[in-house]
Design a protein around this nucleic acid. Structure first.
Length: 696
DNA sequence: GAGCACTGC
């Protein structure tokens, strides 16, 4: 503890905080900022301190450590609050919380009067929530100029930018406690970073002293290939010619027990080679790593507001990320980082910092949140973000919110919208719940919303257990042909009938952790709905299956209202769809869907979809059949939409061309096209589809 | 008939 570098800066830090409402702290890895800053401030007798973290585990573990250091019981003077878990009491002076929780608190109490000091930790990661909080803090220090202190911790490369954002506030540099890491560059970019990683790893294993190797790859696919190649090569080495090696994959879709393997120490005289995704960059820290191999790429999800589509692209990492990866080699002793790219790439091509999430996501939820705060001095299109999203992206959000009745034609939040903002859900699902209440199918809608909140994590370890899964999945319900939302509802009902038996999940290939999370979300949503409607509601999940069946129709009606911004119409003579948005997209039903064909081999005329994903062909993921008569009012509403009115008629789009979009690497974002372009692309897609059809 | 970086309320 004594050896933490930050300790000797205590006087300087306190002095700066006393004189300034906002202070930026550049704290390198190992500086102790997450545990010490709050304690220093606490010692000086400031009031209650909030420290945000972007991750749940971090909030819990840091709170635990601070409580231990202060010799108090966790939940008393020091506590934490994450979703589903509040371990604080009226005694709590230092509270660690996820940034999402602080945003929720700010919804109930926009001035956050409870806190005298707010520390936004890890702000350089630029999560969507942290960015919104930074914008809110900028306003809050003006409103509460006399009794609020804000500290923001950031990375070397953008400290000045954050300082500038907060009226040139002071920046304090706290060195970290990392050992030196020697950075070695390749002379050129390899044609295959997989082969290049393989070669480099073997080279290290044969010629470098002991110490574990951490290889950063982009995804599960590459990791599995590299792991198997490494295993082959290591096995082929002559016994006794070098030390042993064990190869470990590490990525998010690995079951937890396999992830844990990287935390157990290897046997003596054995080197570990860990092949990981970005999960090892910030989320998981592997001890014993001395050598890092960095391919220079990362897989990133991006939203394109002009098409309403998400894509998952392999993009170049930023300098901040490259440095973070290199730092993983210097935690226990001096290390080496092998960058599989030349230094001029790092210097000239890499962005300084990662493109913030706010510029890569659909903003419907965030805009609704900000509108619901009802801050008199805030105009949504002019909201002061550290890095503003494009006006195109904000307008996309406004249009979506208008279609689902969250804002009116003038862009003002409606009473429905106000209630929607209370729900920790994306706006479409929040709207579905509001409507389901009217149609008497709230209990069903709550389940669908909860299931979709964790949907991606439900089906585990696909590829390897494929055979097993195909066998077992046949035991699961099929959505009665009506689509994936209904299937998710049915799956939950089946689980309910087993009294939430964990064994049943395992038998059916459902991820246990995911399903338990669904249960928690379901409980939370039910409580909030009860609070919103100010009265008892029938939200019970159990009941007879026959009753549920009758309710599918009402549920689909509610989904149609909730997903008014995510509707698609089948094209006349085949099973392709055209989205009914502002910019029609030609899309297909994702092959994983359980939506069934009718006797003539056709899909339903109209569907709602949960998400459009370009992979690289455009698909609708999670679809549900709806009826034309429910769709017509929405089409009429679409016709009356006036985007200038929505965004407050004073501002015009042309003022700010898509500056921020153009800042992104070119190949990753389809720059908005002209109408002609779009037509020809649709035509091309049509032809491709017909050509495929002919082949059959 | 195809494919899943990582978080979070």
């Amino acid at each position: 503890m004594v050896s933490l570098p930050i300790v000797q800066y205590e006087e300087k830090i306190i002095e700066t905080v006393e004189r300034n409402p906002v202070v930026v702290v550049i704290g390198e890895t190992g500086s102790g900022k997450s545990t010490q800053l709050s304690q220093m401030i606490h010692r000086r007798g400031y009031g209650k301190i909030a420290v945000t973290q972007p991750r749940r585990v971090a909030a819990v573990s840091v709170a635990r450590r601070v409580a231990h250091e202060l010799g108090v019981q966790l939940g008393e003077e020091v506590g934490y609050a994450i979703r589903f878990e509040d371990r604080t009491s009226h005694n709590t002076r230092i509270k660690y919380l996820t940034d999402g929780v602080l945003l929720r608190e700010s919804l109930a109490n926009p001035e956050l009067k409870e806190y005298s000091v707010i520390i936004l930790d890890e702000a350089h990661e630029r999560s969507l929530n942290t960015d919104i909080l930074m914008g809110l803090m900028k306003r809050l220090v003006k409103v509460r100029s006399s009794d609020l202190k804000v500290l923001i911790t950031s990375a070397t490369l953008d400290g000045d930018k954050v300082s500038k954002f907060f009226a040139d506030c002071p920046v304090l540099n706290i060195p970290g406690k990392l050992y030196p890491v020697e950075v070695l560059y390749s002379s050129e970019r390899p044609s295959s970073y997989l082969e290049s990683s393989l070669k480099t790893a073997l080279d290290i294993h044969l010629h470098q002293p002991e110490g574990d190797v951490l290889i950063f790859m982009t995804g599960q696919d590459d990791i599995e290939k590299l792991v198997s190649k490494l295993e082959d090569k290591v096995r082929a080495l002559e016994e006794g010619s070098c030390m042993d090696a064990i190869i470990l994959p590490l990525h998010g879709s690995l079951p937890p027990e396999l992830q844990m393997r990287v935390f157990s120490r290897p046997p003596p005289n054995c080197r570990r080679i860990i092949v990981a995704t970005n999960i090892a960059e910030t989320s998981l820290t592997v001890d014993g790593v001395v050598y890092v191999i960095d391919c220079g790429y990362v897989k990133q999800r991006q939203y394109n507001p002009s098409s309403g589509m998400y894509s998952l692209d392999v993009v170049q990492i930023s300098k901040v990320q490259a440095n973070q990866r290199a730092g993983r080699a210097g935690r226990t002793r001096p290390g080496k980082c092998y960058r599989l790219y030349p230094s001029r790439f790092y210097n000239d091509e890499f962005l300084d910092v990662t493109v913030p999430e706010i510029q890569r996501s659909s903003l419907a939820g965030s805009v609704l949140y900000l509108k619901s705060l009802d801050l008199p001095d805030i105009d949504i299109l002019r909201f002061d973000f550290l890095d503003p999203p494009s006006s195109e992206s904000l307008q996309d959000a406004l249009k979506q919110l208008y279609l689902i009745d969250a804002i009116d034609e003038n862009g003002a939040i409606t009473s429905i919208g106000q209630k929607m903002a209370e729900l920790p859900l994306e706006p479409s699902l929040a709207r579905t719940l509001m409507e389901a209440k009217n149609y008497g199918c709230l209990s069903e809608a709550l389940i669908v919303a909860a299931m979709l909140s964790v949907e991606t994590t439900l089906l585990p370890g696909q590829r390897k257990t494929e055979k097993k899964r195909k066998h077992s999945i046949s035991n699961l319900p099929d959505g009665s042909g009506l689509g994936d939302h209904i299937q998710l509802l049915q799956i939950y009902h089946c689980w309910d009938q087993t009294d939430f038996d964990i064994g049943w999940c395992k038998d059916n290939g459902l991820q246990v952790r995911g399903m338990l999370f669904v249960k928690d979300v379901h409980k939370q949503l039910s409580q909030i709905m009860q609070k919103i409607s100010k009265g008892p509601l029938d939200v019970k999940a159990n009941g007879k299956r026959e009753e549920f069946r009758q309710n599918y129709r009402n549920l689909r009606k509610a989904l149609c209202v909730g997903y008014a911004n995510q509707l698609a119409e089948r094209k006349m003579h085949h099973n392709g769809y055209r989205t009914l948005g502002f910019q029609a997209q030609v899309v297909q039903v994702h092959p994983s869907s359980v939506l069934s064909l009718d006797d003539l081999g056709k899909f339903p005329d109209y569907v709602v979809y949960h998400e459009l994903i370009a992979t690289p062909r455009p698909f609708m993921r999670n679809v549900c059949a709806v009826e034309m008569r429910w769709v017509i009012p929405i089409i009429n509403k679409l016709k009356t939409l006036d985007v200038y009115k929505l965004s407050g008629s004073i501002h015009h789009v042309e003022e700010e061309p898509e500056k921020n979009l153009q800042d992104l690497p070119k190949k990753d974002v389809e720059v908005t096209s002209t109408a002609d372009d779009r037509e020809s692309r649709i035509q091309a897609a049509r032809e491709r589809f017909l050509a495929r059809k002919d082949k059959k």
